[in-house]
Computed example of a mutant assay.
Amino acid sequence: MSTTWNVTQWTGMTMIASRTSKSLLFSSSLTILVGCDTITNWYATEMVQRNMDNMVLVEGGRFMMGNPGGWSVRKDTVPVHEVELDDFYIQKYEVTQEDFEIFVEASGHEIQARFYEDKRNDSPERFAPELPAPVSWHDAKAFCLWLGEQADRDVDLPTEAQWEYAAKSRGQTVRYATSDGSLHPGQNINEGSTLSRPGIDQELPNSPGTYPPNPLGLYDMSSNVGEWVNDYYSPDYYRSSERVNPEGPEAGKLVTVGPGIEEPERVMRGGHYQDLTGSTTVTRRQVPESSVPLNGGFRCAVNQLAPNGKD
Rank of each mutant, 00 (worst) to 15 (best):
Y116S: 01
E117Y: 00
E117W: 00
D118C: 07
R120W: 01
S123P: 00
F127L: 11
A128R: 15
A128C: 12
A128N: 14
A128Y: 14
P129F: 00
E130P: 01
L131C: 11
P132Q: 03
P134D: 05
P134H: 10
P134E: 06
S136Y: 09
D139H: 02
F143D: 00
C144P: 02
L145M: 11
L145E: 13
L145N: 12
L147W: 12
L147M: 09
A151C: 12
A151T: 13
R153P: 07
V155Y: 03
D156R: 14
D156G: 14
L157D: 14
L157T: 15
P158L: 01
E160H: 06
E160S: 03
Q162A: 15
Q162M: 15
E164D: 11
E164Q: 15
A166G: 07
A167T: 09
A167I: 06
S169P: 10
R170N: 04
G171V: 06
Q172V: 08
Q172A: 10
T173F: 03
V174Q: 15
V174N: 13
R175T: 06
Y176Q: 09
Y176V: 09
S179L: 02
S179R: 08
L183H: 13
H184F: 08
G186K: 09
Q187S: 13
Q187H: 11
I189E: 08
G192S: 10
S193Q: 03
S196P: 00
P198D: 01
P198A: 00
G199M: 05
G199W: 07
D201M: 06
Q202T: 05
E203T: 06
E203H: 03
L204W: 05
P205A: 07
